[in-house]
Amino acid sequence: MSLKQSCIDACLKCATDCEFCLDAMIGKESDNDCPHCCRECVDICLYTAQALARNSKYSSQISQLCAEICTWCAEQCEAHEHYHCQACAASCRKCAAECKEIVSV
C-alpha cells in the first residue's frame, strides 16, 4: 500500500471513530474539549483524505494541520475512560502519525 493510500485510510478511520465518539458524548459532561475536538477532527480528516486523493498541491500543508488537530483530539479523548473515547484517541494518534509521514516526504 502506498504512503498516500495508508494516510487516506487512516483519515477515513479516524473520521468514523470521531463520529462515534461525538455521538456517544453528546449531552454528556466533559471537563475538556471532547467532544468538540471530534467535530474539528472529522472535518479535517475528511478534507485531508479528499486532498490526498486528488493530489492537491496543498496536501502537505493540509496533512500538517490534520496531524495537529488529531493530536489535540487524541489528548482530549485519552482523558476519558469510555471505550469510544479511547478508540477515538487511538485512531487520532494513528492518523496524526500517517499525516506526519506525508509532510516529511
Rank of each mutant, 00 (worst) to 15 (best):
C11E: 11
A67C: 06
I102R: 11
Q50C: 10
D43T: 11
M25G: 04
C38Y: 00
S60Q: 15
A90S: 11
C88L: 01
C7P: 04
C21Y: 06
D9P: 05
P35V: 05
A96Y: 08
E29A: 07
E78K: 10
K4E: 06
C70L: 04
T71M: 01
H36T: 08
K13Y: 05
C77E: 11
P35W: 07
L22F: 14
A53M: 09
R93T: 07
C38E: 00
C77S: 12
P35G: 00
D17Y: 12
N32W: 01
I102M: 09
C37H: 10
D17R: 07
A24T: 03
C45Y: 00
C73E: 00
N32S: 03
Q64R: 12
I44W: 08
H82E: 13
H84C: 07
A67L: 05
N32V: 06
S104D: 14
D31Y: 14
M25K: 06
A97N: 01
E68N: 15
T71W: 05
S91D: 14
S30D: 07
D33N: 12
L52C: 03
G27I: 12
C95V: 02
M25Y: 12
M25D: 02
K57S: 13
Y83C: 05
K4N: 01
I26R: 01
C14I: 12
A74M: 06
P35M: 03
K100A: 10
K94A: 09
A10K: 02
H36S: 10
K100S: 12
Q76V: 06
C41N: 03
R54V: 00
D9H: 04
K4P: 00
C92I: 02
N55Q: 14
W72T: 13
Q86M: 10
S6F: 06
S30P: 03
Q76T: 08
A10M: 00
H84G: 01
W72M: 13
S104F: 07
Y47V: 13
